[in-house]
Design a protein around this nucleic acid. Structure first.
Lengths: 319, 319
DNA sequence: CAGTTTGGTGAGCATATGCCCGCGACCTGG
DNA sequence: CCAGGTCGCGGGCATATGCTCACCAAACTG
C-alpha cells in the first residue's frame, strides 16, 4: 500500500520554491522576510528563490515596445557575432526609419565621446550617419581625434555634402582630420600623388589605429546614393553591379558575401576602407528596405563589428 | 516648426529604463554591468532599473500550479483581514481536498512547533485537523504546551475519536493538557461540577493564553459531523438549525454571520470556545463543498484569524 | 536680472544577496 | 552494525543593492 502519492518530496520542494519565488519577485519581500514568512533560515530562502528561478518557475517579460527591439538586438548579436548592436523602435509604417535611428545611434556615439581617455574615432558617410551627427548634443571632447575615411571634395570641387566630420567636430569640439582629396579621382597619377601627401598618410595611419569607426552602408540599386549624388556615373554603377556589387561602405563596393570588389571603381576611389585597430570596432549605421541586402552582405563578410539599425530592418535581416 | 516629435525626453528615459530593466531582470546582469553596458553611472543604472519596475514595464509571473493558490491566499487575506492563510493546490476534481490540505496545514503547524520559545497551542476538532496531525513529522517539542478545547470522553464513555491532542502530543513529544470531561454533558449540575474541577480550570486558563489555536470548522447539514458521529441527536441538530446555526467550531454552533448561538445545545457543551491570547491567532482548517457556508460565516464573524483550506474551497469563498 | 525652486547627479553607507565552506544527518554497501 | 559517501544546512564573508544626502544646473518667478 503506497499511502501518499500526493507527498512527493520533490513536489513539496518545488512548491516551496514557487512560494518563495512569488514572495520575492511578485511580493517584493526580502529574503529575510521570506525566511520569516516560511519559517526557514535565510539561506534556505535564498536557495528556494534561486531554485524557483533556475527551474524556470519565474517568467519575466518586458511590457514595452522596446522589448521587441532588445530581442532583435540579442538575435543579431548571436547570429552575426557582433559586439555593439542597437535596434531603434519603429515609429510607424509610414515613417522613415532613419528618423528613429538617429537619436539611438547618437546615444551610442555619445557614449564613446564621453570616454575621458583619448579615442580615435573614424567616420564614413551616409544619410543615417549624417542624421546621427545631427542628434549629437554639444560637447567638449578635446581628448579625442575624429578621422574622416572619405575625401572632402565633391566632384564639382565644392566641399562634399557627404562630409560629416566637419559637422561632428563642430558639435563635439574635437580635433579632426579630414581627408584632403576628392571622393573619386579618375586620373591614376593624380590619385597616386594624393596618396603620397604627408597629411593623408597621417590620416591613414590614424584610421588604422581607430578605436571605433562609424560608417554608413550604401546600396547599389538604381537610386544608389553614390550615383544619385553624382559621385559615380551610371556606367560606373552598372560596371560595379556587373562585378557583383550589392553595397558600399565609404564608396568601397562589396559583393553579396561582403567581399570588397577591387576592380573598376575601386581603382579610382579617394579614401580609406572602413577599418580600426585590433580590439576596436567598425559600426555600421543604416536603416531602410534598400539597406537589407547590403547589410546582410556586409555582415556575412564580417565587414562590421557593430550595427545600429531600425526595427524593420533588423527583422528583415533575421527573417 | 516643431522638429522632433520622436524625441520626447520622457520616452527616451522610459526606453532607457526598459533597456536597463531588460538587462537586469531578463539578462541577469548586475547593475554595475548595466552601467558599463549603457555607459552611465551605477546610480543611474539603479534608478533606471527601479523606474522600469515602478512604471510597470517589468511583469513577473509564476509558472506553477501553486500560483493560483498564492493569488487566492492574497485575496483571502485582504478580504477577511486574516493573518495566516494557506491554500492547498487541488489534486483533481475527484480527490478529497482534505488530502491535499493535510500536508500543507501540517507545515504551518510545524512552523509553530519549531519555535524555540515556549508556545501554548490549543487544538479543536475536525477531520481536516486530524488529517493534519497525521502528517506531522516526529519532533521533540518539550518547550510547548498542547491544550485541547474539547472533552476527551465520547458519548459511549470511550476516549473520543475526535480527540486529536493525544496523537499530536505523541508525535511531537510535547506536554499536553486534555480536557477531562465529556463532549456533551446533558445534566446541568454535572456540567457545572466538571467546570469546577481544578485541572479543567488550568486548561481553561491556558487556552485563554494560547499563542495559536487550530480548529476545524463543522457544518450543520444532515451529515453534520457532530450528528453523524453521535455527539448530538437529530433533535439537537434540528434545534440548532432552527436557531440559525450554519456551522460549529469545537461543538460551539454559530449562525450565518458568525455569531455564537448561546441557546439550546450551547448549554450542554463540554469544552471551550476557540480562543487565544491577544496577538495570538485562531486558525481554521477545513476544506470541502460543505464547509463553504460555515467558513464564510466564521470569517464574517471574525471567529478566525487564519485559514488553511483547499483551492476549490478558497475559490468558493471568494466567488 | 537675481533669487528660488525643481529635477536630476554622484558620493557614501547600511543592508541584502550570493556563494563558499565546514558540519552533521542520512543513505548505502559491506 | 559500521565505514564511507552524499546531500543538505547554517555560518560567515565579499559583493551588490537601495537609499539618503548634499550639490548643481536649468527653469521659473518676482
Amino acid at each position: 500500500m503506497n499511502k501518499k502519492p500526493a507527498l512527493d518530496p520533490e513536489d513539496r520542494a518545488t512548491d516551496a520554491a514557487a512560494r518563495a519565488g512569488w514572495l520575492y519577485y511578485v511580493g517584493g519581500l526580502t529574503q529575510d522576510q521570506i525566511a520569516a514568512e516560511l519559517g526557514v533560515s535565510r539561506q534556505r530562502a535564498q536557495r528556494l528563490v534561486s531554485k524557483a528561478m533556475s527551474e524556470g518557475l519565474i517568467h519575466v517579460r518586458l511590457e514595452h515596445r522596446i522589448a521587441r527591439c532588445l530581442a532583435l538586438e540579442a538575435a543579431l548579436k548571436a547570429q552575426f557575432g557582433l559586439q555593439t548592436v542597437r535596434v531603434a523602435p519603429s515609429l510607424g509604417p509610414g515613417v522613415d526609419p532613419v528618423r528613429g535611428l538617429a537619436p539611438v545611434a547618437a546615444s551610442v556615439m555619445e557614449r564613446f565621446l564621453r570616454q575621458p581617455d583619448p579615442l580615435i574615432i573614424a567616420l564614413g558617410t551616409g544619410r543615417a550617419l549624417r542624421a546621427m551627427v545631427e542628434e549629437l548634443p554639444k560637447m567638449s571632447c578635446e581628448q579625442h581625434k575624429l578621422i574622416s575615411l572619405i575625401g572632402n571634395i565633391a566632384p564639382d570641387g565644392s566641399a562634399s555634402n557627404y562630409d560629416v566630420i566637419m559637422r561632428t567636430a563642430d558639435t563635439v569640439r574635437a580635433p579632426h582630420y579630414p581627408m584632403p582629396l576628392p571622393v573619386i579621382i579618375d586620373d591614376p597619377e593624380i590619385r597616386r600623388m594624393f596618396y603620397q601627401l604627408p597629411q593623408l598618410k597621417i590620416v591613414a595611419r590614424l584610421a588604422a589605429q581607430a578605436d571605433v569607426t562609424f560608417v554608413g552602408v550604401g546600396h547599389m540599386t538604381d537610386s544608389a546614393p553614390l550615383y544619385v549624388d553624382g559621385f559615380i556615373s551610371a556606367r560606373d554603377l552598372a560596371e560595379q553591379r556587373a562585378l557583383g556589387a550589392v553595397g558600399e561602405i565609404a564608396t568601397w563596393c562589396f559583393d553579396d558575401r561582403g567581399r570588397y570588389i577591387e576592380e573598376g571603381l575601386a581603382q579610382r576611389v579617394g579614401g580609406l576602407k572602413a577599418q580600426c585597430k585590433a580590439g576596436g570596432q567598425v559600426i555600421g549605421i543604416a536603416a531602410g528596405q534598400d539597406k537589407v541586402v547590403p547589410l546582410a552582405a556586409a555582415l556575412a563578410g564580417k565587414l562590421l563589428d557593430g550595427l545600429l539599425t531600425s526595427e524593420e530592418t533588423a527583422e528583415a535581416l533575421l527573417g
